[in-house]
């Protein structure tokens, strides 16, 4: 079963998304978060080392999917991956999915035991799925 990492500029947002995702996944899926810049989480921003710790917290052979808000979240997540040993990095994937919808979908599908690429595919499909049925 894959693990999930939630990355956001805001510690509160990261915690909230983690909470939502955990409710969709149940107990089995490891979900960690890296939100905010400073240790106390009061400063907005992203920190590659925090993301690295979050990856290590949930890392498993089945893989880890990283869900990010945007901008420097993506760059810091890339840097965190570069700091991982090659063998662990191979099993990590940055998702193009929107953070909230992607985390909800990924958590549910991860809990169904789906592999990393499949979970990412359904999470990224949220990009093209309008929340209002008659929109888009």
């Amino acid at each position: 079963m894959i693990g999930l990492v939630i990355v956001s500029h805001s510690a509160k947002l990261a915690e909230g998304v983690q909470e939502l995702a955990a409710q969709m996944a149940g107990e089995q899926v490891g979900i960690s978060q890296a939100g905010g810049l400073s240790d106390d989480g009061e400063t907005l921003g992203t920190d590659a080392f925090k993301i690295l710790s979050a990856i290590e917290e949930v890392w498993c052979e089945d893989g880890v999917l990283l869900l990010m808000d945007l901008g420097s979240s993506v760059m810091s997540a890339e840097m965190a991956l570069e700091m991982l040993p090659e063998q662990q990095r191979q099993n990590c994937l940055l998702s193009n999915a929107p953070l909230v919808e992607g985390a909800i979908v990924a958590a549910l599908h991860a809990s169904l035991g789906e592999p990393l690429q499949a979970v990412n595919k359904v999470a990224e499909a949220a990009l093209s799925t309008p929340k209002l049925a008659n929109a888009g």
Binding site: L108, A125, A126, T129, K131, A133, N134
Partner: peptide, 16 residues
């Protein structure tokens, strides 16, 4: 509404 895939949480929520 149109029919959506019941195995997709994101589509299911579209039913509102």
């Amino acid at each position: 509404s149109n029919a959506v895939d019941l195995k997709s949480i994101i589509q299911l929520m579209q039913l509102q």
